[in-house]
Design a protein around this nucleic acid. Structure first.
Length: 153
DNA sequence: GCCAACGTTGGC
DNA sequence: GCCAACGTTGGC
C-alpha cells in the first residue's frame, strides 16, 4: 500500500464535488505530464491512500482523505476535441494519457499550506518543496501518519 | 497579475 | 544531443 497527494483545482473538482458524485468517486482526468502518468500506470494500486489537495485557489491545502478506486485506464478527455485536455496526437489505438478513479472517504477541516509548513515532521513533504509542479506526488508513510494526525485521526 | 521553477519544443 | 525559447503551474 502506497500513499499519494493529488492536486485538484476546487473550481474544477473540489472534495465537495467528489462527495456529491455517485459512490463519492471521480475520474482523475487531465493529467498531461509523463512522470505523473507513469506514477498512475506503474505505482498506484487500488486501495492506496490519497490526500485530496486543493490547489490554485484562495486557500490551498489538504481538504479530504481518499483512496485510489481503480487501476489506470485511458483518459477519455484526450480524444475529445471539445475538451481543454484534448490531445490531437493521442489515438484511441494508442492512448497517451491515463487516469485513475478517486473515491473520497471523508472531508477534513482544511489543512492549509502555512499549517503544513509549520509542522517540522513535514519538512520533506514533496508538495512543500520549492518548484514542485507535479499534480500527483508520492507521500511517505511517516508523512501520511503525521497528516492524518493533523486531520484528527 | 507577478514571477520562480520546471517541462516541452524545435532548430541546429 | 544541446539549449534557448516558450508554455504551464501554482503560490502569493
Amino acid at each position: 500500500m502506497s500513499y499519494w497527494l493529488m492536486k485538484s483545482e476546487p473550481d474544477e473538482c473540489s472534495v465537495d464535488d467528489a462527495l456529491a458524485a455517485p459512490r463519492a468517486t471521480v475520474p482523475w482526468t487531465g493529467v498531461r505530464n509523463y512522470q505523473v502518468r507513469n506514477f498512475m500506470r506503474d505505482a498506484m494500486r487500488v486501495g492506496d491512500g490519497v490526500l485530496f489537495y486543493h490547489s490554485s485557489c484562495a486557500e490551498p491545502g489538504i481538504a479530504g482523505i481518499a483512496r485510489v478506486a481503480s487501476a489506470a485506464r485511458p483518459d477519455p478527455t484526450q480524444f475529445d476535441p471539445r475538451s481543454p485536455y484534448h490531445d490531437p496526437a493521442a489515438k484511441p489505438q494508442a492512448p497517451r494519457w491515463l487516469l485513475v478513479d478517486v473515491q473520497v472517504l471523508r472531508k477534513v477541516p482544511l489543512i492549509t499550506l502555512p499549517v503544513l509548513r509549520a509542522n517540522p515532521e513535514l519538512a520533506d513533504l514533496l508538495v512543500l518543496r520549492k518548484g514542485n509542479r507535479l499534480s500527483i506526488t508520492p507521500v511517505e508513510p511517516r508523512h501520511w501518519d503525521a497528516i492524518l494526525k493533523m486531520a484528527g485521526g
